[in-house]
Design a protein around this nucleic acid. Structure first.
Lengths: 145, 145
DNA sequence: CCGCATCCCTATAGATACTG
DNA sequence: CAGTATCTATAGGGATGCGG
């Protein structure tokens, strides 16, 4: 029987509390995959270029679930697989990602793989945001409906 | 002679690169102190409620400096002290903090210490932002001028 | 004093091997 | 295929040292 780990908050600060939740190198990458790469399965997260380890992925999915940022359901085609998707609370993280990307667009110009995103952010941020939301809603209609 | 640690980037992704820089529980708390609590000295960062350890603080100040997010100068009244302050690159992180705070205002309502910030965010985000910037400029005029 | 640097030790993160 | 178990590496807390 494992000892219940009471997640201790370091202070009453909203930033400190946020960092208690996703202040690490992996948690937000899973959320990124959900937002921008239409990934919804364990093996899809594993296939991202950063190469997250299986135990870390498992742990982060649990933490995101416990925090109410993602939800999950059995894959309709295969009971041994799961589908992960963002809750409303999770989807509300999008503005943070977009601001982060804007900062990156300004100060990490040396990331060639990101130039398309940067251009879209600069030209048509609202369009980008709308498209991310639309993609999610499309997926939801097909898989949660 | 210490071995130079080449900070390895995990991928070409802007989010991954950002997390390589501040994907930990402490780095952004130092930036927070600079933005919202008008802290500019080593001992002031140490006095924050999260109680950062001295070696961690020292390490994070170096990393933030190396990343061009903060700069430093000798304290005018005492050569044994230093003043730390945000560069333009650092100040440009403010929108990320504000989006984070907005998310927290919606989903961490149980942080009584933050209610004032949340209210201000809800009522007058632009005013809040302007005030943070104004406070910084006031400090700069007095200390960097 | 003040800003760190260093050391020691523990806790946690994470890579790899393995299992149901 | 989706995770767990095991092992190792790193982050971090706390005490202390040390130069300016």
């Amino acid at each position: 029987m494992p000892i219940e780990k009471t997640v201790q908050q370091r202070s009453q600060c909203v930033f400190s509390n946020a960092l208690d939740l996703f202040g690490d190198k992996w948690t937000l990458l899973v959320v990124r995959d959900l937002f921008f790469f239409n990934k919804h399965e364990y093996k899809e997260f594993l296939s991202s270029p950063e190469a997250i380890a299986t135990n870390i992925l498992s742990d982060r999915l649990k933490k995101l679930y416990a925090a109410g940022i993602i939800d999950e359901k059995i894959h309709p085609e295969n009971r041994s697989r799961k589908l992960y998707y963002l809750t409303t609370k999770g989807k509300d993280l999008l503005p943070i990602f977009l601001e982060l990307a804007k900062w990156g667009a300004k100060y990490m110009k040396d990331l060639p793989a990101m130039q398309n995103l940067y251009r879209k952010l600069g030209n048509d941020e609202k369009g980008l945001k709308a498209q991310v939301i639309a993609d999610i809603q499309k997926w939801e209609a097909e898989n949660l409906g």
